[in-house]
């Protein structure tokens, strides 16, 4: 999966009623940042290995969690993992995330669908969990 091509695809079209803005972040591993129109504060980050495409959205950091309700928050996250379509909760370097993994052989439409779903899930997750956040 070539992330540059993917980025061009994204900016080229309006899909599922959304428009996208992409930026390729270079580093040891290339990352494509996709900003969904309307969800500018929560960009989706896409990276790829030989086997899978990983789409990640960052939700909140550890220090945004109210210490006294952390256990309850984690419980809710576990309970929500399956009902939440296509995405799962996880934690990367001290930050809570939602992510979705796709096969590298996925079609472009599948990646778009994943990204849009991830954006919607992120907003909804923060909304549901905001009582646990500072």
């Amino acid at each position: 999966m070539n992330l540059q091509d993917l980025g061009l695809h994204f900016t080229d079209v309006s899909l599922e009623g959304y428009k996208f803005e992409c930026q390729l972040i270079s580093g040891e591993v290339e990352v494509l940042q996709v900003v969904i129109e309307g969800f500018e504060e929560i960009p989706i980050y896409i990276s790829a290995t030989d086997m899978q495409i990983l789409c990640i959205a960052y939700l909140w950091s550890e220090d945004e969690v109210k210490a006294e309700s952390k256990a309850e928050m984690l419980e809710v996250m576990m309970d929500m993992n399956i009902p939440m379509p296509l995405s799962s909760f996880s934690k990367v370097q001290g930050r809570y995330v939602v992510f979705g993994a796709l096969s590298v052989n996925s079609r472009f439409e599948d990646v778009v669908h994943e990204v849009v779903t991830l954006g919607e899930n992120s907003v909804e997750s923060i909304s549901i969990m905001s009582e646990f956040l500072k």
């Binding site: 972040i25 270079s26 580093g27 040891e28 591993v29 290339e30 990352v31 940042q33 980050y45 990276s47 290995t49 030989d50 086997m51 899978q52 990983l54 990640i56 990367v92 370097q93």
Partner: peptide, 14 residues
């Protein structure tokens, strides 16, 4: 590979 890639990707994002 995934662990490594996520780690590096996160660093790149940061």
């Amino acid at each position: 590979k995934t662990t490594e890639s996520v780690h590096k990707a996160t660093s790149a994002i940061n």
